[in-house]
């Protein structure tokens, strides 16, 4: 199973993602933002970080970089693309995913473990995950998901909401919303469900000694579903 992780100037979770993908059996290649063509891949990952120093808007400059033309074509041909944190911000700036990520409601950088409730398991990313909630790590300043009223209706109707911030038992309310996201949204799909963007970092939860193992569950499941 081949994967590619794109490194932009300012990406800083690219290596962690490389380690995680390889740990669970992917043959991963690192791809530089200025490259033109993607290597043959079944999965492309846009990693977390601060691409282009978050200039203009988070993810906006990266969304126009050279490699993104190939990434967008890959998405349009049904290729699986996953954007984590800054990668999520890049995907909304390309228009592949709906909405936008605003500054956190209380203007704080948030760095902590949270629980997320899986809303849609009818896709290769979450199919066969037995747990309803996962404990994952978030670290962001702009994770406050926002979209227009019409868009929220549309993504609801198309079952595009992937993850909600919740408590351990899957309860979704204001107390479990870390950043002000509309409806506690932590991750969304495109209409076709081949593109996923999420703020939490599964690659930070793959070591039983350092963190939890819910990231391991995610990656093991993902590679099985892509086979």
């Amino acid at each position: 199973m081949n994967s590619s992780v794109i490194t932009f100037p300012g990406s800083n979770c690219d290596r962690d993602m490389d380690v995680a993908l390889k740990k669970f059996g992917f043959k991963n290649k690192m791809v530089w933002h200025n490259d033109v063509e993607l290597p043959k891949s079944e999965l492309v990952v846009l990693p977390g970080g601060f691409s282009y120093g978050d200039y203009l808007r988070c993810g906006s400059m990266a969304s126009k970089s050279r490699i993104m033309k190939s990434v967008i074509n890959f998405a349009k041909s049904g290729g699986k693309i996953m954007g984590i944190c800054n990668g999520f911000q890049i995907l909304v700036e390309t228009g592949l995913l709906p909405g936008v990520l605003l500054r956190n409601k209380y203007l704080e950088f948030i760095c902590k473990n949270v629980f997320v409730k899986v809303n849609n398991k009818n896709n290769p990313y979450f199919k066969d995950i037995k747990k309803d909630t996962l404990e994952l790590h978030i670290a962001h300043n702009e994770g406050n998901y926002f979209c227009s009223k019409e868009q929220i209706k549309e993504i609801n109707n198309n079952n595009q909401i992937a993850l909600y911030y919740s408590d351990k038992d899957g309860k979704i309310n204001e107390n479990t919303n870390p950043n002000g996201s509309i409806k506690n949204i932590a991750g969304v799909f495109n209409k076709e469900k081949n593109v996923l963007g999420m703020m939490p970092h599964p690659e930070r939860m793959i070591d039983p000694d350092l963190s939890g193992e819910d990231g391991s569950i995610f990656f093991k499941n993902l590679i099985n579903n892509l086979k």
């Binding site: 203009l56 808007r57 906006s60 126009k64 909405g99 936008v100 605003l102 979209c147 227009s148 868009q151």
Partner: peptide, 8 residues
């Protein structure tokens, strides 16, 4: 195309 994000 770039300077503004028309969603917000």
């Amino acid at each position: 195309k770039l300077l503004a994000n028309l969603v917000i």
